[in-house]
């Protein structure tokens, strides 16, 4: 099998597996690792995760599809999630969703043709104070109305929010090593993104 993880990520993946008494327990962390590398979970990554965790690709797929934050289909560079739970709904979330769909020319769950944007409906993101709450690549952004949403999309397209919004799949820009085998020696590193 050809390795899909980069050498660095492969080493990190093996360290993660070693962290657990049962290697299967590392399944979800490894899915996040693969998603941080590629932005989504491709078949090759799931196969490698299965091999690392001593399970089967079907079980990795079964687990990954359970979670909304793990994408088994290719997503855009920016995944825009709009919360439609009660507080946001009352503050006009669905109007915002309709606007976003018009603006981006895609429906929820779809990706724009240029591969820039994926639009998603999300469950409560715990940002009710700024309802309707919007996230891009899991980072909160202020885009509660049509005008600020359009401004956000323009800026993202021009790449002006890179400091604020990392690549999709990167959960944390600081790679934590605490608890991982050999972690004492390894300094905290800044992720390349």
């Amino acid at each position: 099998m050809t390795a899909h993880f980069s050498a660095e990520n492969r080493a990190r993946a093996e360290a993660l597996v070693a962290l657990y008494p049962q290697s299967r327990s590392a399944l979800v962390p490894l899915c996040h690792l693969a998603q941080a590398q590629d932005g989504w979970l491709c078949a090759e990554a799931m196969e490698e995760i299965a091999e690392l965790c001593g399970t089967t690709p079907a079980e990795v797929y079964g687990t990954a599809t359970f979670y909304d934050m793990l994408h088994t289909e290719r997503v855009g560079r920016h995944v825009i999630a709009i919360c439609t739970n009660i507080a946001c709904l009352l503050a006009g979330a669905y109007e915002l969703v309709e606007h976003a769909e018009r603006r981006l020319g895609v429906r929820c769950g779809q990706t724009t043709e240029d591969g820039e944007f994926t639009l998603e409906e999300a469950e409560c993101l715990a940002g009710c104070d700024a309802a309707p709450c919007v996230q891009v690549n899991h980072r909160f952004v202020a885009a509660g109305d049509a005008a600020s949403f359009d401004a956000l999309v323009d800026e993202l397209a021009k790449g002006r929010r890179r400091q604020e919004v990392p690549r999709h799949g990167v959960l944390c820009r600081i790679e934590r090593t605490v608890g991982l085998p050999g972690s004492e020696a390894s300094p905290r590193r800044q992720a390349r993104s």
Binding site: A43, A58, Y61, G62
Partner: peptide, 27 residues
């Protein structure tokens, strides 16, 4: 598949009312 045959080539995928028994795509 997992317990008796020892080859979990199918698993429950997705969630809630979207749940389905699925093999790995392409396998």
């Amino acid at each position: 598949a997992a317990e008796v045959a020892g080859e979990a080539m199918i698993d429950l995928a997705f969630r809630s009312d979207g749940i389905e028994v699925a093999p790995f795509p392409g396998k």
